[in-house]
């Protein structure tokens, strides 16, 4: 795999919920083995990027490419099958399924790869201990681990993480940062949608800032002025 080939590319993408125009010409790339962060305040359209990729938000003008193939009219199930694993904002676990079943559902895309139930249990041993508990009976941090584990079960080339630190204690965020770093080091590209700058700095090398549905700043996180980024995130 070419280290510089984009895994995911948004090229001037507009997106809508009904008549509401949310994203305006959004462009960014995630290259193979790279971790890119999308930053921005609440309500600027960060999650709409994920929803557009999944076909939940309507994709208007512009192009979305995954492994250089245009995704014309995305449908939710196609993303996982194509190799995009998504840990959704709010975790979105199934309360009527056990931890084990939530994870097995993540393999519904039938993509072969290194991630299996045992692999996820080795990554997050607490999930093995609570395997038969309902998915939503876990603590917030454990639920986030389950959401990430479920996304990994799709053996994704790109892992999309939508606000994974939301509502979690700093010690759990530290643990997740280490996991994200390890996954990225093993070659999984990451798209990290976050407001937690400290997590972003530990996991990603490049960033794009979203404001009112537009990319207003992007670049490398190396040597960036932290206060300028903080300004875009602070409420």
């Amino acid at each position: 795999m070419n280290a510089h080939a984009p895994v995911l590319a948004f090229e001037g993408v507009d997106a809508f919920y009904g008549a509401a125009h949310i994203l305006h010409g959004v462009s960014f790339q995630v290259r193979a083995g790279e971790s890119v962060a999308i930053l921005g305040r609440n309500g600027v359209g960060k999650t709409t990027i994920v929803n557009t990729l999944l076909g939940i938000a309507r994709h208007g003008a512009g192009a979305i490419r995954f492994h250089d193939r245009a995704i014309e009219r995305p449908r939710p199930y196609q993303a996982a099958r194509a190799g995009i694993g998504v840990a959704l904002q709010g975790r979105k676990l199934f309360p009527n399924l056990s931890v084990r079943e939530n994870l097995m559902l993540g393999a519904a895309s039938n993509r072969a790869g290194a991630w299996t139930l045992d692999g996820v249990f080795d990554l997050f041993p607490v999930l093995r201990e609570r395997a038969e508990a309902p998915g939503t009976a876990l603590s917030g941090g454990q639920q986030q681990m389950l959401a990430i584990g479920r996304a990994l079960m799709a053996n994704p080339d790109l892992l999309v993480l939508d606000e994974p630190s939301e509502g979690l204690a700093p010690v759990i965020v530290d643990e997740l940062a280490a996991v994200f770093g390890a996954l990225n080091a093993k070659g999984t590209a990451l798209l990290l949608i976050e407001q937690n700058l400290s997590l972003v700095e530990r996991v990603s090398r490049r960033f794009a800032v979203l404001a009112k549905g537009r990319v207003v700043e992007e670049g490398s996180l190396d040597g960036i002025d932290r206060t300028s980024l903080q300004r875009h995130i602070a409420i």
Partner: peptide
């Protein structure tokens, strides 16, 4: 398993590849 998941939330089940 897919039926039980989709009965709870068809969109989130679809995001998993169903």
């Amino acid at each position: 398993l897919y039926v039980r998941a989709a009965s709870h939330d068809p969109v989130i089940a679809a995001v998993q590849g169903v």
